[in-house]
């Protein structure tokens, strides 16, 4: 389950896959191949507001430190690739 994810033990591909699995868990109506790194998660309405709030917590858990909500910018949750760049890239947010 999500609580077993530890950022230190995961490379970029693992993190992207963890994000993809998390989204697919939330959306069992979607085929596994419906989500790739560039699928527009918000625009396609794959994520609702409650999902985004919980995904934010999951991202914090994955990377092991909090996200500054005030510093969030439009588009930060656009797709998995953007999520990775925004929250797991260097320098980290």
């Amino acid at each position: 389950m999500t609580s077993t994810f530890l950022h230190m033990s995961r490379g970029p591909l693992d993190i992207r896959e963890a994000l993809r699995e998390w989204i697919l868990e939330r959306r069992p109506d979607l085929a596994p191949d419906a989500i790739d790194e560039h699928t527009p998660l918000i625009e396609a309405r794959y994520l609702e507001s409650l999902d985004v709030a919980e995904l934010l917590l999951f991202v914090e858990q994955l990377r092991g430190r909090p996200i500054d909500i005030d510093a969030l910018t439009p588009g930060a949750f656009r797709d998995i690739d953007t999520l990775h760049t925004t929250f797991f890239g260097e320098p980290a947010q």
Partner: peptide, 9 residues
């Protein structure tokens, strides 16, 4: 959460 959503979208 709706406020958060409006911030990123």
């Amino acid at each position: 959460p709706k406020s958060l959503m409006q911030k990123i979208d």
